[in-house]
């Protein structure tokens, strides 16, 4: 943790967009400005509550370059590690905590002739910074959302005639029809639940989209499951990973300076060598061969099929 640059942010205000979505506005604790962020960037909030520590990444929805405040939207996750529940139930204006970043692993392609953005639910968030960045360019956003989020999302998108909402139950949504209608030079950006993204990627591949024109931002929301234990081979320490805790969080809680960056299984920074045990791979980084080999694990999202993993650290 020591190696990561953090700064302290204060909650300027919170606002519930609806029962499940909370808009959080952060400002620098001290006088001054935040670093400028680019379209698609995220920050990591370091939150503490009753002995738990969360380090959750959230896409910035503020306009690229905005430095006086950072804005995020947090969906309350039903069954998760608890960070979003904390933000919904306890976070108040005036609270101060460290944030990391901004970082960006989901930037718009400069060579694109057209930008096609497809979002599932809260996957709308990175595109709220794309829209102003791509103003004047050929860009189009489609958001598939639950009916209960339609009103809140419609308000967020009110200024953007190139953004289209597709509430489930009210409208049919055919990603295939949208993908099949795109001119040459279109780049596709995806953010949403894993199943949403996997289904669209499959349709895109069938239509002949090349992977180099598909850009993905993952939530990494699937890092909970059965409890297991890890042994750190170099000093013999044994740690328990709770059902509602990721392996990375368990390492950090124990004071291990484990590397990490995106915390969503995409960037590869938190890769650890596995000496014994069977990993339950949930990342989007390792190759098929690496997964099958079972000798590496991405600590931020992946867990264990065996009750115990021995890690080379």
């Amino acid at each position: 943790m020591s190696r990561r640059a953090t700064m302290r942010a204060r909650v300027a205000r919170v606002e519930n967009l609806n029962a499940g979505l909370r808009h959080v506005v952060l400002e620098p604790e001290e006088a001054g400005l935040f670093p400028a962020a680019s379209a698609g960037a995220h920050i990591v909030l370091q939150l503490r509550h009753e002995g738990r520590v969360w380090r959750n990444p959230y896409s910035l929805i503020s306009a690229p370059g905005a430095r006086e405040e950072y804005r995020i939207i947090v969906r309350r996750a039903a069954a998760s590690r608890g960070g979003s529940a904390y933000i919904h139930e306890h976070l108040r204006a005036g609270e101060v905590f460290p944030i990391e970043g901004p970082r960006n692993m989901f930037w718009p392609a400069t060579t694109a002739r057209k930008h096609l953005m497809l979002a599932g639910g809260i996957g709308i968030t990175p595109f709220l910074s794309y829209l102003p960045a791509l103003a004047g360019q050929n860009a189009e956003l489609h958001v598939r959302c639950k009916a209960e989020d339609e009103a809140a999302f419609a308000r967020l998108l009110a200024a953007w005639p190139n953004a289209h909402l597709h509430p489930s139950g009210k409208t049919a949504f055919s990603a295939g029809a949208i993908l099949a209608a795109q001119p040459l030079g279109t780049h596709l950006y995806l953010c949403g639940p894993d199943a949403f993204m996997a289904a669209i990627e499959a349709e895109a591949a069938a239509l002949g989209w090349i992977s180099g024109k598909i850009h993905r931002e993952y939530f990494g929301g699937n890092s909970t499951g059965q409890a297991f234990s890890v042994v750190l081979a170099r000093d013999g320490r044994r740690l328990a990973v709770a059902p509602d805790q990721s392996l990375l969080e368990a390492l950090e809680q124990a004071g291990v300076d484990a590397p990490s960056l995106c915390r969503g299984g995409a960037c590869g920074a938190c890769k650890i060598t596995v000496l014994e045990g069977v990993p339950d791979h949930r990342d989007h980084f390792l190759s098929g061969a690496e997964r099958a080999g079972g000798r590496a694990i991405m600590a931020c999202v992946s867990r264990a099929h065996s009750g115990r993993l021995v890690l080379d650290m």
Partner: peptide
């Protein structure tokens, strides 16, 4: 021709 084509073109 390419101006009228759609992604998936080879």
């Amino acid at each position: 021709r390419m101006a009228a084509e759609r992604t998936g073109f080879r």
